[in-house]
């Protein structure tokens, strides 16, 4: 079963009467366990594609099936439920809530599922341990370094046991060393069976996945399977 299937997906932005085509009839299938990287020049539509796949935005045409369910007719709240239960996000700007602690940030998605404070903090602690930030759990996120922030964001993306994780330029705001560590971490997640979709314009990130989609002018220009995935070292270099 395909985790994600889209058919002739279109997204046209209407900017004061001027139509801009961001996605122009994209067909795509993503299976469980894949590590898909999406590359392309800015304005190519790669972020738009990720936002629609992540149920943050709606297409203006075509069909989107998530776990074989057509999402076209889903209400805002039903899409929120899918994001809450099936999807994890990692953003370029981390998007942590600065006044909450690391623990509270990681546990936040579970709050919207109605899980008790105790249970969600317990779960969050497990993931904070996974990203090796145990000693920072009580810190406000504003006191962390960029790399630490992104690890908190990854822990948050994992806290709801998502079917798929979307990362939009996850290394974009980091130096190469921190970025390398994050990328290595994403590879480890993939090794454990997590499905990942990473949007990037950095080539070393693109080469870290198992499949690369090249997007130009709102179309998939090239869909490349990577036979032997490049391993990222801690200092950010490909082996």
């Amino acid at each position: 079963m395909d985790l994600i299937r889209i058919e002739k997906l279109e997204k046209i932005y209407d900017n004061d009467g001027v139509a801009t085509v961001a996605l122009d009839g994209v067909d795509l299938k993503i299976s469980e366990g894949e590590f898909v990287t999406i590359v392309g020049p800015s304005g190519s539509g790669k972020s738009t594609l990720m936002q629609i796949l992540g149920c943050l935005d709606r297409p203006t045409g075509g069909k989107y099936f998530f776990e074989d369910k057509e999402l076209q007719t889903y209400s805002d709240d039903e899409l929120a439920k899918i994001r809450n239960e099936k999807i994890g996000f990692v953003f370029q700007a981390f998007n942590l809530l600065p006044r909450l602690s690391v623990l509270e940030n990681v546990a936040l998605p579970l709050m919207y599922r109605g899980i008790s404070v105790k249970a969600r903090h317990e779960k969050a602690r497990e993931l904070i341990h996974l990203v090796e930030l145990d000693d920072r759990a009580g810190f406000q996120t504003s006191k962390l370094s960029g790399g630490q922030k992104q690890r908190v964001a990854i822990a948050r993306a994992l806290v709801n046991d998502p079917k798929i994780i979307f990362a939009d330029e996850p290394t974009g705001n980091l130096d190469s060393k921190s970025g390398g560590a994050i990328l290595q971490f994403l590879q480890e997640l993939n090794d454990r069976g997590h499905t990942l979709v990473v949007v990037t314009h950095e080539s070393y990130v693109a080469q870290a996945g198992s499949r690369t989609l090249h997007i130009i002018d709102g179309k998939i220009n090239k869909d490349e399977r990577v036979e032997k995935r490049r391993i990222v070292s801690k200092d950010g270099f490909l082996k």
Binding site: G54, D76, N84, F89, L97, L108, P109, Y112
Partner: peptide
């Protein structure tokens, strides 16, 4: 606004 966007991305409904 960004906080609202983030909360929604993480699964907050309009009602939340």
């Amino acid at each position: 606004t960004r906080e609202i966007g983030l909360r929604k991305a993480l699964g907050a409904t309009n009602g939340n």
